[in-house]
Design a protein around this nucleic acid. Structure first.
Lengths: 110, 110
DNA sequence: AAACTATATCGTAATATTGCAATATAAATA
DNA sequence: TATTTATATTGCAATATTACGATATAGTTT
């Protein structure tokens, strides 16, 4: 149906899924990597960095912002975007669990 | 268009996006968490754990497998699924970069 | 205020995802 | 070999995502 049955899952599962889904697009990976690379908070030149039209980039930025992975602050008529620790902290716990499990668990059957 | 312009992005960006996208659904988060919880490699009882029909679960398992996040091995007429380190290792590097950046970088503007 | 610059929103077309009933496949057992 | 059990595939309807042109909004500069 294209409609996810979120009500059947825990809040944590839904939250993690929203975060991972937001990261799950090459343009949004590129945005995150660019914000890390240009040490200062970069503004609208993200548009110039990406091979996509301005409205498309704006849409991707909005999705990252809604997920809590980036945040923006006004700076004149431009907007300054940077990574939002909060979102990344939430997802870190999940991957830590996975990694801890994989380290201690020498694959048994598969 | 619903069609991602993968050709404009690096292979790494596309690969990371595929992995994150595969994780980006509450049912697939639940599957991963379940495989961690039941210490041994669990088989088709994943279907019983999830609030979704068998074909839907099968589809989610397929997506996780295609992304390289789980793998399965035959065990009689059942199939034993467990986490695939390879996929998770690939994504770990990305999050390590993000976390290292966030630790060293006291948010300046946002 | 008018023109310019930067970003967001709207509308829409193309495509992808989600979910499931029905059915197929394949191994295990009677 | 017929039946049962476990999983995958097919087909389809409902919904979501991606991309972008056109346009709106809001701050800046002249």
């Amino acid at each position: 149906m294209g409609v996810t049955k979120t009500e059947h899952f825990t809040e944590e599962q839904n939250e993690l899924a929203i975060l991972a889904k937001a990261i799950g697009h090459p343009a949004r990976i590129a945005i995150i990597q660019h914000l890390i690379k240009v040490n200062s908070c970069v503004c609208g030149d993200i548009v110039n960095e990406l091979p996509l039209a301005q409205p498309t980039v704006s849409q991707h930025l909005k999705e990252l912002k809604n997920a809590g992975l980036i945040k923006g602050s006004f700076e004149g008529n431009a907007i300054c975007y940077c990574l939002d620790e909060e979102g990344f902290n939430k997802i870190r716990g999940f991957f830590n669990q996975v990694n801890t499990y994989l380290e201690n668990k020498k694959n048994q059957c598969c």
